Simulated assay, not measured.
Amino acid sequence: MTLTRKLASEFIGTLGLVAIVVGSGIMAERLSAGNDAVALLGNSIATGAGLFVLIYGFSNISNAHFNPAVTIADMIRRRLAPSTGAAYISAQISGGICGTMIANLMFTLPIVNMSSKLRAGGGQFLGEFVATFGLIAVIRLGVRFHPNLVGALVALYITAAYWFTSSTSFANPAVTIARTLSNTFAGIAPESVPPFIVAQLLGMVSSLLFTEWIFADGDQTND
């Protein structure tokens, strides 16, 4: 598979993911009559279902990262060349931004609608650390022990993490950046982004260290 096709997969996959997250957030907000629990339920179900389809659809092309944290983890582990990883991340961020713009337009909002929704405080940052730690662990454990189920495992984990983390589990720097462009239920204020991304990267590194320790028996099967 050529790099161009892999980058197209990462661009369209991340675009689709963010369009689902933001679009379902807008729809949920409009239909829930102010009930945030109902809105979050709709948002999380749509995201999990969309992730399932996108991961299985693109996994044989680019491995369906759709997430700079996942890409950087592969770069750290030398499973992805730095130049290729950087290209993946560029495709993911640009795809995510386009996904938000498309979602805004579908719901007749300004194409760029900067969010004012502050997501701040130690609890939310810890939530992002936990969400990303868990995501990387689920991916690595799934690849090692249940390679045919990775897409389902990730989709189910993210659906659950919407509810058990205080931050509603962004766990993805590209998605975090993209969601600044929609002042809706799924949005995040730009000033909240840097701490979120730091927490995500710390969670990713910590999860890599943990899973490397778990796998330190020398068995490299499927990892």
Rank of each mutant, 00 (worst) to 15 (best):
L201C: 07
I20H: 07
T180N: 04
A91H: 09
L149P: 01
A87S: 15
A39V: 00
T211N: 02
R78I: 11
A189M: 09
N183I: 01
P147F: 11
A103R: 06
L109N: 02
G57T: 00
G127W: 06
A103Y: 05
S115R: 04
G50M: 03
T132L: 04
I89P: 03
G187T: 05
G42S: 02
P195D: 09
V53Y: 08
M75A: 14
V143G: 10
S182K: 13
G134P: 12
M106W: 05
D219G: 13
G218E: 03
G95T: 07
T159E: 02
R119C: 01
S90A: 15
L3R: 13
Q200G: 02
M75C: 14
L156K: 11
R179Y: 04
G25T: 09
I76E: 00
T159K: 03
T221E: 07
F164H: 05
V205T: 06
S9T: 05
F66A: 01
P147K: 10
R5S: 15
M27L: 11
D36R: 08
H146S: 13
A87K: 05
E10N: 06
G42C: 05
A189G: 05
S62D: 10
G42H: 02
R179F: 04
K6E: 14
V130Y: 12
I45K: 03
V150I: 06
A33M: 09
L135P: 13
I61Y: 09
L109M: 12
A174P: 00
Y162F: 12
